[in-house]
Simulated scan of single mutants.
Amino acid sequence: MVTIEQKLTLFSKLLHQDIKEEVENKLAELDKEYKRRIIRNKDKVDKEANMIIENAKKRAELKKIEIISKSKISAKREVLLTKEKYINMFIGHFEAKIKSFTQTEAYKNFLKGYLMQFKEIKDYKHDLVVYMTEWDYAHHKDYIKEILINLELDAQKLSFEIINDTILGGVIIVDPVFNMRIDASIAALLQDSKNYIIESLFTAIGEVGGTLE
């Protein structure tokens, strides 16, 4: 006959076996879940890492483009500043040559040909003020007056005054009544020809068309 103690011992063994199996099953399930979570987390981490890498690449590419763009702009600015420097230098030398030219006999021939182009001034009937450089006033005033008379202007209506040397040569004719101004100065001629002079200058030194891509 099985005693109560034996039954309790058997029950205890069975209970222990069930608990053991349940614990093992639970542990197995936990292990599987843990592995699943590891895989999910790894995928998530990999995606986040790839995203970070891609964003870093994009930022690096944008930074690269920005640096290249700034470098191009800086280089282009340097080229423009260099061109401007040489243009100003050339214009300065050119103006010095013009001032020297105004003190030659050939300048008188130039004056006649240049001023004779302004035939429209013959229509002005008011008194006119003719402005010229100090050099022209001292050396060519009568000659310029003669040219203007040949343009059918009344000598009695002409007065002559000195203006600063920035006009380089030639004259500026002003009608104070109508506030009319005819700029027949060499400075105006130089300004009108500036683009052609600059183009010719850079053609000569091989710079025309030089651009940065």
Rank of each mutant, 00 (worst) to 15 (best):
M1G: 05
V2D: 07
I4M: 07
I4T: 06
K7T: 02
L8I: 14
L8S: 10
L10Q: 09
S12T: 09
K13N: 11
K13D: 08
K13Y: 02
L15R: 06
I19M: 10
I19K: 09
K20I: 00
E22P: 07
N25W: 04
N25R: 09
K26N: 11
A28Y: 05
L30P: 06
K32I: 09
E33D: 14
Y34N: 14
K35S: 12
R36M: 06
R37M: 09
I38Q: 10
K44E: 00
K44V: 00
V45C: 14
A49H: 10
N50A: 07
M51T: 10
I52V: 12
N55P: 04
K57T: 07
K70F: 00
K72P: 08
A75Y: 05
R77P: 01
E84L: 01
Y86K: 03
Y86I: 15
N88V: 01
F90V: 02
I91S: 00
G92C: 02
G92N: 12
F94K: 12
S100H: 07
T102I: 13
Q103P: 14
Q103C: 12
N109D: 15
L111Y: 02
K112M: 00
F118R: 06
E120W: 00
Y124K: 08
K125Q: 15
V129W: 06
Y131I: 04
Y131L: 12
T133W: 05
T133H: 05
W135K: 09
D136P: 04
Y137H: 05
Y137I: 02
H139R: 14
H139M: 12
D142S: 08
D142P: 03
K145Q: 13
K145F: 05
K145A: 14
N150A: 15
L153P: 12
K157W: 03
S159F: 03
S159D: 09
E161P: 00
I162R: 03
D165K: 12
I167Q: 08
I167G: 08
V171T: 14
I173M: 05
D175S: 05
F178E: 11
F178L: 10
I182N: 01
A187K: 12
A187M: 14
A188M: 13
L189Q: 12
K194R: 15
I198G: 04
L201M: 08
T203N: 15
I205E: 11
V208F: 00
G209W: 04
T211W: 00
T211C: 00
T211N: 10
